[in-house]
């Protein structure tokens, strides 16, 4: 089996992994908010919320690796590997692509600091982790701006659902925090 670097296969893969990454990242943010807001019920223990947050965050990283890999390998656009990490390293839709690079850098920073949380200390980690609230909207904007499928109805619906979900849980989080 060989990978056709010129056909549309990689392009489809880029779009698909991009969409899945958006869903997973949204899931990670949702579960992160639930951890911070101390959600629990008789059937849903707290460690499960946190376990989901962790596992989904690591899956985000895996899907982003695929997303970037297929993008770089795809010869239709000439996006270098560097452009995935460094803003404005590519001329192709430089603005929207840069948002993706920024979001990726933030996600890597969030994951690495979380894995090193024990060494970093709680306070420093907590401050850094606020970056998540900046990272998620940047990633969504990247998808809306550059995504091939951004005008497909169901993709718009999914994106809106992500926005609505995070908005609702964030509101719950703020309210539950106030109540404590």
């Amino acid at each position: 089996m060989s990978i056709d670097l010129h056909g549309p296969g990689l392009w489809y893969a880029t779009r698909a992994t991009g969409l899945v990454s958006m869903l997973l990242l949204t899931g990670s943010v949702l579960f992160g908010l639930l951890v911070a807001g101390r959600f629990s019920s008789a059937r849903w223990p707290r460690f499960l919320t946190q376990g989901m947050h962790r596992s989904i965050s690591l899956m985000v990283l895996a899907f982003l690796a695929l997303h970037i890999g297929t993008t770089v390998l795809d010869s239709y656009t000439s996006i270098s590997l560097a452009a995935a990490f460094v803003p404005f390293a590519s001329s192709y839709k430089a603005g929207w692509l840069s948002l993706g690079a920024v979001a990726l850098d933030l996600i890597i920073a969030l994951v690495v600091t979380s894995l090193l949380r024990g060494r970093l200390g709680y306070r420093a980690w907590r401050r850094l982790h606020w970056l998540a609230y900046a990272c998620w909207p940047v990633a969504i904007a990247h998808g809306l701006g550059i995504g091939t499928d951004r005008s497909v109805t169901w993709v718009i619906a999914v994106t809106l659902a992500c926005l609505g979900g995070v908005g609702a849980v964030a509101a719950w989080r703020v309210l539950s925090f106030g109540a404590q």
Binding site: F47, Q50, G51, R117, G118, G121, Y122
Partner: peptide, 8 residues
């Protein structure tokens, strides 16, 4: 210990 949200 690893799961403690505040590393307490």
């Amino acid at each position: 210990a690893d799961a403690c949200p505040t590393l307490a």
